[in-house]
Design a protein around this nucleic acid. Structure first.
Length: 586
RNA sequence: GCGCCCGUAGCUCAGCUGGAUAGAGCAUCCGCCUUCUAAGCGGACGGUCAGAGGUUCGAAUCCUCUCGGGCGCGCCA
């Protein structure tokens, strides 16, 4: 059930019945101010313009038509016209009560999608040559939040972790690994610190001519399938993937080894793909390289935009691999939508690859190709986020620090918790805070990373939402103790009277609208804003509408408990879609 | 030079297909715990929506220009 969709349908029908052209949209939106009803229909003004009539007259006709719709009348308790032609709609308390009861009976909170799609999502995609750092955080957690949301809606989601496990740098890394193995190291020990391993191999490469020659030789052997080199590569890859998986597990990200489909997977496709582009006349030789020139992306002077798909000397580039992956995802995985969560700096590249893929018919015509870009993670100084010494911040270190900081705060706020409870809560709070701080900002902007605001745990933060949830759970425990009420089995009728109750019910029922918009636009911050609003409205309800205190009638208790249950389920589900865990106490 | 993104309160950010008096949090100040967890609630203070034109019943939102900041632009990914 989606209030906005329902009202759009009703008002749309009414408009057509009033003789308004079908092109005129009803424009339904939640009202921003108290006194303007719960929802407003703003379509009368536009319709009046198209029909050269007076807006208020049009609004009046729409309202009259709505009056003959029984379903609408059941849903709405009041409707009036204001200002130049706004139609303000107040929802009926009885209808809201029934809907709250309905979502309490539904494990999916009333969210059911009629047309499900196959959606391929490319996210995280770290380079295996190095350890995961903060630069990978945004793609990983934003992508994961959208994946979870799409799956919740019932779509078939195929995760694609397009890891960087191929290319020239691996010759160097394999040569280094071979040397260290000969010195008696085990692979996992040599690669314990990937970052310093990379540094030492780079140093080796720069300083030793013979080592550099060997590294270059290994690149060739690797690509031609030499068994011993391939075996070394395999070892390196395994250890690095284990590192990544540890991060995913710590971050509560749903990626698993099954989702790995890296650059190396397309190795055999690259030469034929270039050949095909040549045969189609799209790729031409230019300065020894194979280049596709895109007239549709030409600059002002008409110079076409060049995309190099094969280097002088025969090597392939990431544009080639990305084209191969697009073809695979469209034709083999049968995607309806293909989503990429990649840094905004690659916007031009993505646009080029999409354009080439369409021209070459590597993807089906109706597949939706979407680059969902995001900005850079900045430090307090407004420059890209680095350690004090200027190095990249490892994700592993970041997560440890978040948990430690949370541990201190949790122990301080609630000394009565046992050490194990405290540790578990600190983990969920710390990791949740890091993720939420990122997810709650519009992803297209750069994002300023700040421990203080993130872990202050006040305002629009994960702990605020988690706290709201624990408050509700605490009431439920108390209800069971004091009155033997099991909230989950209540089925008595809900009665909404207080302003705080009505506001809370409406906000709770708007969950499906937000889910729909979040997955369509791939903006997790919409869900965050919603959950923060919901938690805030609950906090006000909590202050104003006592449940288990003296003098509250049994009927009111049961009614408010059921409303609280709907809120708790919504908070829990919403946070879990963001990949943030909840707890019973904090 | 060309292209993309951004500019909203002291700070960090919302503002949904153009809608009514531009909203939160932090910070500052003032209230509220013998009553369901005060990691909370209420109130005050705080804005030429970078600037200038334009489109119209109506613009933070759309168009043009200017200023300021970030990023990208054929053989790294």
């Amino acid at each position: 059930m989606n209030i906005r969709t329902l009202l759009s349908q009703y008002v749309s029908h009414a408009m057509q019945a009033a003789g308004i052209p079908a092109e005129c949209p009803p424009i339904i939106a939640p009202s921003k101010k108290a006194g303007f009803g719960d929802y407003q229909a703003n379509g009368a003004m536009g319709a009046a313009k198209a029909m050269k009539a007076k807006p208020r007259d049009i609004a009046q006709q729409i309202v009259e038509q709505l009056g003959s719709n029984d379903d609408f009348n059941q849903m709405v308790s009041n409707i009036d016209i204001a200002g130049p032609g706004f139609i303000n709609i107040t929802l009926a308390p009885e209808w809201l009560s029934n809907e709250i009861s309905a979502i309490n009976q539904d494990t999916n909170l009333g969210i059911h999608t009629d047309t499900t799609e196959t959606i391929v999502v490319d996210y995280s995609s770290p380079n295996l040559a190095k350890e995961m750092h903060v630069g990978h955080l945004r793609s990983t957690i934003i992508g994961d939040a959208i994946v979870r949301t799409l799956e919740f809606q019932g779509h078939q989601v195929i995760r694609q972790n397009h890891v960087g496990d191929w290319g020239t740098q691996f010759g160097m890394l394999i040569a280094e690994l071979e040397e260290q193995l000969q010195e008696g190291e085990s692979a996992s020990l040599a690669l314990k610190d990937l970052e310093s391993f990379y540094q030492s191999s780079k140093k080796h490469f720069d300083e030793s001519e013979s080592f550099a020659d060997k590294a270059r030789d290994y690149v060739v052997k690797l690509q031609s399938g030499d068994e011993s080199v391939l075996a070394l590569w395999q070892q390196f890859r395994e250890v690095s993937l284990t590192h990544s998986q540890e991060i995913y597990d710590a971050l509560n990200v749903t990626l698993t080894p099954n989702d790995i489909y890296g650059e190396s997977a397309y190795n055999q496709d690259l030469a034929p793909l270039v050949e095909e582009l040549k045969q189609q006349g799209l790729a031409t030789e230019d300065q020894g390289a194979q280049v596709v020139f895109l007239e549709e992306m030409a600059d002002k002077d008409g110079n076409p935009s060049p995309v190099i798909i094969q280097k002088q000397g025969g090597g392939f580039l990431y544009a080639t691999t990305d084209l191969a992956s697009l073809r695979y995802r469209s034709n083999t995985l049968n995607a309806d939508r293909i989503l990429y969560f990649i840094d905004a700096r690659q916007s031009l590249h993505m646009q080029q690859v999409f354009t080439v893929a369409r021209k070459a018919k590597f993807v089906k015509e109706n597949v939706s190709l979407e680059h969902h870009a995001f900005g850079t993670m900045m430090g307090n100084d407004g420059k890209p986020f680095k350690t004090r010494t200027g190095g990249t911040v490892k994700l592993a270190d970041l997560l440890v620090e978040a948990t430690e900081r949370a541990q201190k705060l949790v122990a301080d706020k609630n000394p009565e918790l046992s050490p194990s409870e405290c540790a578990e809560i600190a983990r969920k709070v710390g990791i949740g805070a890091v993720k939420y701080a990122d997810l709650s900002k519009t992803r297209t902007n750069d994002y300023v990373f700040n421990w203080e605001t993130m872990l202050s745990f006040e305002g629009n933060t994960a702990p605020y939402l988690q706290y709201a949830y624990t408050r509700i759970k605490s009431i439920f425990r108390k209800a069971a103790e004091q009155t033997s009420i099991d909230v989950h089995t209540l089925s008595s009728s809900i009665s909404l009277q207080e302003t705080a109750e009505l506001a809370l019910a409406i906000k709770t029922l708007q969950f499906s609208e937000v889910i729909e918009q979040t997955s369509r636009e791939a903006y997790p911050h919409l869900l965050c804003t919603y959950l923060y609003d919901l938690a805030g409205i609950f906090m006000r309800f909590y202050e104003q509408c006592p449940i288990l205190k003296e003098g509250v009638s049994s009927d009111t208790q049961k009614s408010r408990l059921q409303l609280s249950l709907a809120v708790a389920n919504t908070l829990h589900t919403g946070l879990s879609l963001l990949g943030i865990e909840t707890m019973e106490k904090m």
